[in-house]
Design a protein around this nucleic acid. Structure first.
Length: 695
DNA sequence: GGGGGAAGGATTC
DNA sequence: TCACGGAATCCTTCCCCC
C-alpha cells in the first residue's frame, strides 16, 4: 500500500477486489462482508512482491482486453455473419451428438466430498466442530471448514492471512477467533477415499477419479438396470460382466519380441474362439432399453440413486457428506455438483432447452476450464459474465479467440461435453508427459548456492526417474525470483547437447544439461546489475524414451508386453497398414469380426478403435475395484497401453503425420501382444461398445 | 504462410 | 516461520526456416 501513487488508488482497489475475491462464490461465504474482508486481505498482502507480480500479470490481461476492444470496433455485419456461419456449422454437429447421447439415456454424475480434508479431521476431532479450522499450515491452507469460511478463510489462502482474518473478525461483524491449523494426513484421506470409491464402483465400474475427493460416474447403464430390476442388488448383477472364459493358453502374455508370434497367436485366437462365439460377452444391462429422460420418473430415479450413493458413503465414512450433480454430460454434472453444496445435489435436465435454461444465468466462471484470466477477458472484453450472455456473443468470441479457445467457449455456452467422459480426449499415448520437482525456499543468490539447489532438486527428479525406469530427452529449468517472476529454460539431451547422451536419467546428467542455463541466467542478471535471487527452483523432464519398468529377475509383467521389442526405426515395419488392422481384428470376438462388412477397411478401423477404447475403459474400471494391489496396477497399465494404441487423430502430437502413424503402429502392435492378458475384458468391452454405440 | 520448436501462460486439484 | 504450494498438462505467442 505504501508507495502507491494516490491517483492509482481506485484502480488498485478494484484490481485487488478481483485479485483476492476470485473465490467469492464459494459455498459457505454467503452474507460475508466481502469488501471489508478483501480490504484486510489487501492490507496484509498489498505491498508484497507477490501482489506486485500479480498486478503486472493483470496488466497483460488488460492489454488483451484493449486489443480485443479495438478489434471489435471493426467487427461489422459481414464479419459477424461469416463467424455466425462457422458457428452454426459446428453447432449442428454438437447438437447431433447431444441428441444421440440423450437418446441413449446418458446420465453423468459427479460426486464431491464437502471440504474433504477438513471434514475428515473434524470427524476425528469432534471438539473442533464449531471452531474455524484450516488443514494446512501458516504457509498455505489446503482446506478450510465452513465455520472458517464465515471469516473469509478459503483454500489456497496463505495461513497467516486466514489467521489474521479470524482475529480481526469484529471489523466485519464476526467475533474474534483463533484459526486452528491441522497438519494434513494424506494417508488417512486416501483410506477414506478408497472406502467411497468401492461404493461408487458398484454403480459404475468404470468410474474416474481425478483427486481424492471427487469421482465421475457414468450412471447410464446402472439406471437402465435399476429401472428394470428394481433393487440395487439385482441391478448390480445386470451390470456385472460375466467371468472371463477359460483360455487354453496359460499365462496369456504375447511375445512382443517376435512379430510372427503376434500374428500366429492372433490367428489362433480367432480359431479357438469360434466354438464359444455364442457366449454373452457384454453386461446384460447393455441389452436393456435406454432410459427415457424426458419421462419425469426417470429423472426421479436418477435423483434417488444419487441420494442413495451419498447416504451410503456418508454411513460408510463416519458421517462425511458429499455433494452431487447429475447431467447429460460430465461438464454439466460437475457444475451441478456445485449448485447445492454442501450436502446437496442437483440435476440438470437433459435436452437443449433445459440445458440452456440452466446455463442462462450461470456465471461462466462456474464452468471447469474457465479460470480467473478467461473470466476477466470475457467480462472486460465482451461484457460477458454468464453462459447465456456468452451464447449471445459467440460471433464476437469467434473473432477474438484462437480456434481451440472459441470451440471450448462454444461448448460451454451450449452446455455440451465430451461423450465418454472428461478424460476422453487425453491419454494420447498413456504415458506421463512430464515429471519434475520444484521447491520453494528462502531467497538464495550467488552461483554456488544456486548450483547446490539445482543439484539437490536434480537428485530428487533423478531418483523418481530411476524408480520408474524412465529416461528423458529434455529437461526444463524453472526459476522464480524473489519478486515472484517466473521463467523457464530448457535443454535437449540429444547429440550436440552438453551430455552427449540421447536420453538422461541420472542427477549428474540433469545437472550437466541444466547448469549452463542457470549460469547463463546468473550472468545475465549480473550484467543488468540486479543479481539473480531465487525463491523457487524446479527441474522438469519430458520427451521420455519408451518406458521400461525395473522388475525382479524372472518376473513378467504387462509392461513387457508394452515395450517395443527394439528401438523404433522406420525399417522396423511398414507404418500402419493392413497387418496391424488384421491383427487387431483377429483379436475381436468372432461374432463381431464375422459381421457383414467387418472386413472393409473402414469398418476394421472402427472395430479397432472400439477395441482399443473398450480395453482402456474396461481395464481402468477393473483397476478401480477393490482387490490385490499388484493386480490393480497391472490393469491400470493395460488401460494405459490400450489408450496408447489409439490411432492418430487430427489433433495428435506435434510430430509429422508419418511419426504419428508409426507410433500408432508400434503401439498397436504392443497392445495386440498385451491383449492376450486381458482378453476376456476386451471382448466384453467391445461387444458392449458396439452394441451400445448410439447412432 | 505454415510447420515446428521454445518460452511461458493458464488451469486444475 | 513476518509469511502466498506443487505437479502436470494444455494452450498461445513468438520466431525461424522453408
Amino acid at each position: 500500500m505504501a508507495e502507491r501513487p494516490p491517483n492509482d488508488a481506485s484502480r488498485i482497489a478494484s484490481v485487488a477486489t478481483s485479485l483476492f475475491a476470485h473465490a467469492a462464490a464459494k459455498g459457505g461465504q454467503e452474507g460475508l462482508d466481502r469488501e471489508k474482508v478483501n480490504n484486510i486481505i489487501f492490507e496484509l498482502s498489498g505491498s508484497s512482491s507477490y501482489t506486485k507480480e500479480k498486478l503486472e500479470h493483470r496488466g497483460d490481461a488488460e492489454k488483451w482486453v484493449a486489443a480485443a476492444r479495438r478489434k471489435l470496433e471493426t467487427f461489422d455485419g459481414t464479419k459477424r455473419s461469416v463467424a455466425a456461419h462457422h458457428l452454426k456449422k459446428r453447432e449442428a454437429a454438437l447438437e447431433a451428438t447431444r441428441r444421440a447421447m440423450d437418446a441413449a439415456g446418458t446420465v453423468c454424475c459427479v460426486v464431491d466430498f464437502d471440504m474433504f480434508y477438513a471434514a475428515v479431521e473434524l470427524r476425528d476431532r469432534p471438539e473442533l466442530k464449531d471452531k474455524p479450522v484450516a488443514v494446512g499450515g501458516p504457509g498455505m491452507i489446503t482446506t478450510a471448514n465452513y465455520v472458517a469460511r464465515k471469516w473469509g478463510v478459503r483454500s489456497a489462502m496463505p495461513g497467516f492471512i486466514g489467521q489474521e482474518l479470524c482475529r480481526r473478525g469484529p471489523e466485519f461483524g464476526m467475533p474474534r477467533a483463533e484459526l486452528v491449523f491441522v497438519r494434513p494426513d494424506f494417508e488417512k484421506y486416501t483410506a477414506v477415499s478408497k472406502v467411497a470409491r468401492a461404493i461408487f464402483a458398484e454403480y459404475d465400474p468404470h468410474l474416474a477419479c481425478y483427486s481424492l475427493d471427487e469421482a465421475y460416474l457414468d450412471l447410464t447403464l446402472y439406471l437402465r438396470a435399476r429401472a428394470a430390476a428394481g433393487s440395487h442388488g439385482e441391478a448390480t448383477k445386470l451390470l456385472a460382466t460375466p467371468r472371463p472364459r477359460k483360455r487354453k493358453r496359460g499365462a496369456g502374455f504375447g511375445e512382443p519380441d517376435d512379430d510372427d508370434d503376434d500374428e500366429a497367436e492372433a490367428d489362433g485366437v480367432g480359431d479357438d474362439e469360434a466354438p464359444d462365439g455364442d457366449d454373452e460377452a457384454a453386461a446384460p444391462a447393455v441389452a436393456l432399453p435406454p432410459l427415457d429422460l424426458r419421462d419425469d420418473a426417470a429423472g426421479r430415479l436418477a435423483d434417488a440413486v444419487l441420494a442413495e450413493i451419498r447416504a451410503r458413503v456418508r454411513a460408510a465414512t463416519g458421517g462425511l457428506t458429499l455433494s452431487g450433480g447429475l447431467g447429460p454430460n460430465f461438464r454439466l454434472a460437475k457444475v451441478a455438483a456445485d449448485v447445492r453444496k454442501p450436502d446437496g445435489q442437483h440435476r440438470v435436465a437433459c435436452g437443449r432447452p433445459g440445458v440452456l435454461a440452466f446455463l442462462r444465468t450461470l456465471p461462466c466462471r462456474k464452468v471447469g476450464g474457465v479460470g480467473r484470466v478467461l473470466e476477466q477477458k470475457l467480462e472486460d472484453g465482451l461484457g460477458v459474465r454468464t453462459c447465456g450472455e456468452l451464447l449471445d456473443r459467440l460471433p464476437e468470441v469467434h473473432a477474438l479467440f484462437a480456434p481451440k479457445g472459441r470451440d471450448f467457449l462454444q461448448d460451454v455456452a451450449l452446455g455440451v461435453g465430451a461423450a465418454g467422459g472428461p478424460e476422453d480426449d487425453d491419454d494420447e499415448d498413456g504415458l506421463p508427459k512430464g515429471l519434475g520437482n520444484e521447491r520453494t525456499f528462502r531467497p538464495v543468490s550467488g552461483l554456488g548456492p544456486l548450483l547446490a539447489k539445482l543439484e539437490a532438486i536434480a537428485a530428487i527428479v533423478a531418483a523418481r526417474l530411476e524408480t520408474r525406469g524412465m529416461r528423458a530427452a529434455r529437461a526444463t529449468l524453472k526459476l522464480k525470483t524473489s519478486a515472484f517472476h517466473v521463467t523457464t529454460r530448457d535443454a535437449r539431451a540429444p547429440e550436440g547437447g552438453p551430455t552427449r547422451e540421447r536420453y538422461v536419467q541420472s542427477a549428474a546428467s540433469l545437472v550437466a544439461l541444466l547448469a549452463p542455463l542457470l549460469r547463463d541466467e546468473v550472468a545475465k542478471a549480473d550484467e543488468r546489475g540486479a543479481p539473480l535471487e531465487l525463491r523457487l527452483m524446479g527441474v522438469r523432464t519430458s520427451d521420455f524414451e519408451v518406458k521400461v519398468a525395473p522388475r525382479a529377475p524372472g518376473q513378467r509383467n504387462l509392461e513387457d508386453a508394452f515395450a517395443p521389442a527394439r528401438p523404433p526405426s522406420p525399417k522396423y515395419r511398414p507404418p500402419g497398414g493392413a497387418d496391424v488392422d488384421a491383427a487387431v481384428l483377429a483379436e475381436l470376438p468372432p461374432d463381431i469380426a464375422g459381421q457383414p462388412g467387418a472386413d472393409g477397411p473402414r469398418r476394421r478401423r472402427v472395430a479397432a478403435v472400439a477395441a482399443t477404447a473398450g480395453a482402456a475403459g474396461e481395464a481402468r474400471g477393473r483397476a478401480a475395484e477393490p482387490g490385490d494391489a499388484v493386480h490393480r496396477g497391472l490393469l491400470l497399465q493395460a488401460a494405459r497401453a490400450a489408450a496408447a494404441a489409439r490411432p492418430p487423430g487430427p489433433a495428435a502430437g506435434r510430430r509429422g503425420r508419418r511419426g504419428r502413424v508409426s507410433r500408432w503402429a508400434s503401439a498397436a502392435r504392443a497392445r495386440v501382444a498385451a491383449l492376450a492378458a486381458c482378453r476376456g475384458d476386451v471382448e466384453r468391452a467391445v461387444a458392449r461398445l458396439l452394441g451400445d454405440a448410439p447412432g
